Amino acid sequence: MTKVLVFSPHPDDDVIGCGGSIAKHVAKGNKVGVVYMTSGDIGSLAHSPAEIASIREREARQAAGCLGVSEVHFFKNHDGYLDCTWKNLVRVTSLLREFRPHIVYIPHEDDRHRDHRKTHELVVEACGWSGSPRAPVCGQNLWRVGTILCYEVGTPVRDCSYVEDITDYIDAKSRALAFHSSQLSNLDYNEAVRSLNRFRGITTGGGTYCECFQVVRATNLFSARDSFRRGD
C-alpha cells in the first residue's frame, strides 16, 4: 500500500489541485491523509473568523470523506499569515515521520497566493528534515519522502513535468468540491476547475481530464512497488 499525504493551505485547495488524484489513489487501495495548514478563517464577509473556520473545517471533512481520505489534520495557522516557522517545521516533520508517506502533494512554488507559496517552502524544508537526524525533537523514526508533486490551484503550473489522467474520477472531484459551499457561494469555481482539467487533458494528450504537476522529487514514482503510476 502506498501512503499519500496532501498539504492544503486552505480547505478546498486539496480538492481543486489534486482531488482527482486523491480519488484515484483511494480506488487503488492507497492510504491518503490531508493536512490543512489554515482553516480559511478570513474566507467570508458574512461570518466571524471563528465561525467561518468552523464551517470550513466541517466542509473539508465532508469533502475528504467523499473522496475516501483516511485522516485529516488541521494545523489552524492564521489564514493569510502562514510562515515557515520553527513550530510549523516541527509539526510537519513530526507528522511526516509518523505518517511515513511515499508521495507528498503540495502547491507549486510560483502560486500567486502567499499561503500557497509558504506551504510549498515549509513542506519541502520539512521533507528534508524528515530524513535527517538533525531534528530529534520530531521523533526518532527518520523517513525520506520518495516523491513530491506540486499541484495547481489559482495559478496554473508553467512547466508541467507530470500528468495524471483523472477522467474516471472527475465526477468524484466535482462532488467533493461541491461540499465547500461557503466558498462556492462567493465564486462558483467548480466549473472553472473542471474546465482546467479538461484543458489539461486536451493540451497534454494524457486523457479526457487531467491534473498537471511539477515534480520536486520522484525517487519512487515509477518504481515497481508503487501501485499509482502515470496512466494506470
Rank of each mutant, 00 (worst) to 15 (best):
D83I: 03
T167P: 00
L187W: 14
T219S: 12
G43W: 00
I22F: 06
G131V: 09
V216G: 10
F213L: 07
L95K: 04
E57P: 15
V26P: 03
C212I: 11
M1H: 14
V32F: 11
V32P: 01
R134W: 12
P156R: 03
V123Y: 06
F199G: 04
F199H: 13
G19N: 02
R194D: 05
S21A: 12
I202V: 13
F228R: 03
C127I: 04
C18W: 07
G19V: 00
G207Q: 06
P11H: 01
P133N: 01
K173V: 00
S161D: 10
D83Y: 10
D168M: 07
T204M: 05
D41Y: 07
R144H: 08
D13M: 05
D110T: 10
N77W: 06
A176V: 09
P101G: 04
A50L: 12
S39N: 15
F179A: 07
A135T: 15
T204K: 09
H180V: 11
I106R: 02
L177M: 15
P11L: 03
Y209L: 00
T2E: 14
S181A: 15
Q62W: 09
T93W: 01
E98S: 13
L82W: 03
F99R: 05
R198E: 09
G29S: 02
V145N: 05
E211P: 05
R200M: 00
A224Y: 12
Y189H: 14
H47Q: 12
G19E: 04
P133C: 00
V35A: 13
K24F: 01
V123S: 09
F99K: 02
H25G: 02
H116M: 02
G19R: 03
S185F: 11
V104H: 04
G43D: 03
P49S: 08
T2N: 12
C138Q: 05
N186L: 15
C138K: 09
T219F: 15
T38C: 12
L45M: 13
C127N: 03
L142N: 06
R117A: 01
L149H: 07
S161R: 12
K87L: 07
T93K: 02
K76C: 02
W143S: 12
R91T: 04
S181Q: 15
N77R: 11
D111P: 02
G68R: 05
D159Y: 14
S182D: 09
D165G: 04
L184I: 14
Y151M: 08
I22G: 05
Y209P: 01
H47W: 14
Y105E: 08
G207S: 07
K173T: 00
N220L: 15
E121H: 09
N30R: 14
G139T: 08
H47L: 15
R144S: 14
Y105R: 01
V137R: 11
A46V: 13
Y105D: 04
S94P: 11
D110G: 09
G154N: 15
S44F: 03
L142Q: 09
S227L: 14
I166Q: 00
I170L: 02
R217S: 01
R158S: 11
I202K: 06
G19T: 01
R61N: 12
